[in-house]
């Protein structure tokens, strides 16, 4: 890990205002694929929320305060079915447990940042920002707080705006387009993973193990837990493989 981190420690000495702005823009540019995936998905959420009887203010407030796709889709679905509040909150917690692991993994990568920055940034962790940041180049351009802010704020803004648009224009948007656009986020995951594996072919077993565990557990424990368990157990394969190849498992470059 030592040599992995030194590269990210430069560029922290004297950051001017324009440096910050440039880093923020770099992050925002990197988040464009997330934005393209989030916006239509959030409109789909807005439409569903409208159909479940949520007023626009509640729909947008949920995106502002919760900011978690799977949980919000589930919640409006449950509200539509007349579920109790506590049930919804508990189900939401179950779906979100996986973010503990993602947060731990990102913290290791961004361990050099000030505590307050890490805490603020951790609130912006989603499956997509986690994936994007985990596979970002490990250089000083992609390591600072303002870069993180650019990625996080852009993603967040498109999610919130998309849900507002969906809620207000629900009758104008064909329901089918959001389903097609959902492919964008999977394409993003694939587009991040494939070059990652080209650089580090030894991690292929880890990725396959994650997918297999998730597939096996999905019908048993639900998608949220299945992803968490696939991540945890698949990651252990990485540890075992790393026993034979000391290079595996270092922060991706």
């Amino acid at each position: 890990m030592k040599h992995g981190r030194t590269a990210t420690q430069g560029g922290q000495h004297h950051t001017t205002r324009s440096d910050k702005r440039r880093a923020f823009r770099r992050g925002a540019a990197m988040a464009v694929p997330i934005m393209l995936g989030y916006f239509p998905l959030a409109t789909a959420y807005g439409i569903l929320a409208y159909q479940a009887g949520l007023p626009a203010a509640s729909t947008v407030a949920m995106s502002l305060l919760v900011y978690a796709g799977a949980s919000q889709f589930m919640a409006v679905n449950m509200i539509g079915l007349g579920a109790a509040g506590l049930e919804i909150v508990l189900a939401c917690f179950m779906v979100n447990i996986r973010h503990i692991v993602m947060s731990m993994s990102l913290l290791q990568r961004y361990g050099h940042l000030p505590t307050s920055t890490k805490r603020a940034a951790s609130l912006g962790i989603t499956d997509e920002t986690f994936a994007m940041l985990s596979f970002a180049p490990a250089d000083s351009d992609h390591a600072g707080g303002w870069f993180l802010a650019g990625v996080m704020a852009t993603s967040y803004a498109s999610w919130v705006l998309g849900s507002l648009v969906g809620s207000l224009l629900s009758s104008l948007i064909p329901g089918d387009w959001a389903a097609s656009m959902a492919m964008a986020l999977y394409a993003m995951f694939i587009g991040l993973l494939v070059p990652g594996l080209q650089r580090k072919p030894d991690a292929t077993g880890t990725a396959v193990a994650g997918a297999l565990v998730c597939t096996a557990l999905n019908p048993v424990v639900g998608a949220g837990w299945a992803i968490a368990m696939g991540t945890l157990l698949g990651g252990l394969v990485g540890v075992l493989r790393g026993h034979w190849d000391p290079d595996i498992g270092e922060a991706s470059s």
Partner: peptide, 12 residues
């Protein structure tokens, strides 16, 4: 393990 997490997570 933590460094392997991104690969496993994306698979899942």
């Amino acid at each position: 393990w933590l460094a392997s997490i991104p690969y496993a997570a994306l698979g899942a």
